[in-house]
Design a protein around this nucleic acid. Structure first.
Lengths: 257, 257
DNA sequence: TATATTATATCATATATATGAATTTTCATT
DNA sequence: AATGAAAATTCATATATATGATATAATATA
């Protein structure tokens, strides 16, 4: 169903502000995939008619979704649905930079392996599937400046990625999140990460060509989609002798001025 | 000079939007300390008169400063200048939680040492002072649930904290950033962090009572004030066997709905 | 055809105004 | 003094409208 075809009923008696009701309706359109990544959404005038509110209320609703990262407004052009690509990946999800630098640069990625295995208990628990269900486990090597510093292990449930093969994965030609989005209709909306320092085990030391027991930064990332459904478990093993995990933070989460 | 006494000249011909000009004027009042932490700022009606614009423009300017974290609006009460305290510290700057938990809890802090030393070259460089200038170096131990997992090393230039003594530091009764703010008029506006995995050296292993060479998460934080002036260099050494460094991230930096 | 101009579409800024919601203050009543 | 109702204060939501800025499309002109 197209967004312009449906009848939204906004409750003017509700305690929830109109702008928030509209924001939620639009969010649901994203969730229901009636507004697809990269797509141009109806202009403000149309939205005014669709929801029968003033343009200021529409702008507030759309503005919030823009700040949340779901929509992107372009003056003179229109408002578009956000889509994952290399630059957004670099900006939002890749947290590493060479020693002494604060500038991120795009990592080079090299494929290592693609396997099917049974989900561990904790993986199954995270995904909300039964233990032993099949999952894909994929290893990649990431580097900067021709050297590799990071091993990425990706675990995703087979059920959510029907038909995914090693060839499709290798031939994606873009970021992994872009693959999820374009080939499997899964849009990663939020991530959380947990970091630990550990010792390199045999596997990691071989893959990264570093001494056994070297200190390694281990990053566990949970990638989720709408309604906090977990889609991907990613573990990065980072040899931080030459690169840093960086995080910048304003007093809050303010917009850049 | 009080904010209500001065004449702001807003340039209506400027390419910079009015709301941004006003946001910048208010920001400068914060910077010049004419609006102090915790203080109630003039209400919207007064600001309308002060800047001679409509209330919508004022609300936009104040709204941005609120999102940036400098102001806090409270319906029915007024708008206040943000101040550092324990809850904001927990919310924004303390990134650790016990294994398996996503809930942060307030750490307990124990004083270790307070010394004066000469700035290293890199410290001096960061602070913009000459090498060898005196700095304070303070060690603390942080823990959760009666056990200590973190050693914090704080380095701050003596010149910016005149009269600071071990007694004042120990008797602060609040967070360190609150001390900076209330006793020394220095307001930390933003931080950036760089993380590495290293091996515990002798000093750290003794302080945390862990084996030598255990993997340790090292967090280097640069704390800055207005105009990106560096105020504090803090290094945290974290034994991550029982706790995680956690980071959550929405698709962007969206406001909570 | 190539270029410059004009028109159109779309979001951005700004004003003016009305009503509602949340909090504190005031003040009458008990 | 304690309580409760009313008033005042302040920010929040919502409408209506006008003008500006930016990008694209259409058109006229050389």
């Amino acid at each position: 169903m197209s967004i312009t075809d449906q009848k939204f009923d906004i409750d003017r008696e509700s305690k929830t502000p109109l702008w928030l009701q509209i924001r939620n309706e639009l969010y649901n359109c994203l969730y229901r995939d009636e507004l697809r990544p990269g797509q141009l959404i109806p202009n403000e005038k149309t939205l005014v008619q669709l929801f029968d509110v003033s343009i200021g209320t529409i702008r507030k609703a759309v503005g919030v979704l823009e700040k949340e990262g779901f929509l992107i407004r372009k003056q003179g052009l229109g408002t578009f649905v956000f889509q994952h690509d290399k630059s957004s990946f670099l900006f939002e999800y890749f947290h590493f930079a060479l020693n002494g630098s604060n500038e991120k640069q795009s990592p080079n990625v090299e494929f290592i392996s693609f396997d099917t295995k049974k989900a561990t208990k904790s993986e199954a628990n995270e995904f909300g599937i039964s233990a032993g269900s099949p999952v894909f486990q994929i290893y990649n090597k990431l580097g900067l400046n021709k050297k590799f510093y990071i091993i990425d292990k990706i675990v995703i449930p087979q059920s959510k990625f029907p038909g995914l093969t090693e060839e499709i994965f290798k031939g994606r030609g873009n970021t992994v999140y872009n693959l999820y989005q374009n080939k499997f209709n899964i849009f990663i909306t939020n991530c959380s990460e947990k970091l630990k320092a550990i010792s390199a085990d045999e596997k990691i030391s071989k893959l990264l060509n570093i001494p056994l027991n070297d200190p390694i930064l281990k990053v566990d990332r949970v990638g989720q989609t709408y309604n906090n459904e977990t889609i991907e478990l990613r573990t990065s093993y980072v040899h931080t002798s030459d690169i840093d995990y960086i995080q910048s933070q304003n007093s809050t989460f303010g917009e850049a001025i």
